[in-house]
Design a protein around this nucleic acid. Structure first.
Length: 154
DNA sequence: GCCAACGTTGGC
DNA sequence: GCCAACGTTGGC
């Protein structure tokens, strides 16, 4: 059982937008980083949980919990020349990029802000990947101890 | 295989 | 808007 963190810029796709989708489910498309892709394609399993993180916004932080509702399948947005995430090197016969479906489990009443998370950076969250220097992964695994600790902050 | 140039990410 | 950190690209 793995735990995950999914980053998104809320003006691109927010937890509020997910909440409004049919069955509160949407595909997590547009991942164009090999390491993040490998996590999704090779390790994410249906039913696993993840945090939804808002980045590049007024108050970056964890805003809720989602679950994997469909395991990895080809990211069709890579095949669409009109799509922002079009990649001419991804071929439907040999897809380069993948996505999963996520379903909203819970939107937090109050976000757990990056500022709050950082306040534990030298203690309980000392080796938390999100806080690692220069980390830019949009999809990353979370250790169970960190998952539990962050949930205790709610 | 090396590495400089370039583009992107993301906090501030 | 700035800038540090990082990933990718492409010439050699």
């Amino acid at each position: 059982m793995n735990y995950w963190l999914f980053k998104s810029e809320p003006n691109e796709f927010s937890i509020e937008a997910l909440e409004k989708m049919p069955r509160k489910t949407e595909h997590w498309d547009g991942v164009r980083n090999y390491q993040a892709r490998n996590f999704m394609r090779d390790e994410m399993r249906k039913g696993e949980l993840g945090f939804f993180y808002h980045s590049s916004c007024a108050e970056p932080g964890i805003v809720g919990i989602i679950k994997i509702s469909k395991e990895a399948y080809p990211d069709h947005t890579a095949f669409d020349p009109t799509d922002k995430h079009f990649d001419p090197k991804s071929d439907p016969q040999a897809p380069r990029w993948f996505m999963v479906n996520v379903t909203l489990v819970e939107k937090f009443r109050e976000p757990i802000t990056l500022k709050t998370l950082k306040s534990y950076a030298d203690r309980q969250l000392a080796d938390f990947r999100l806080l690692a220097r220069g980390n830019r992964l949009s999809v990353m695994p979370i250790e169970k101890k960190h998952w539990k600790f962050i949930n205790s902050l709610r």
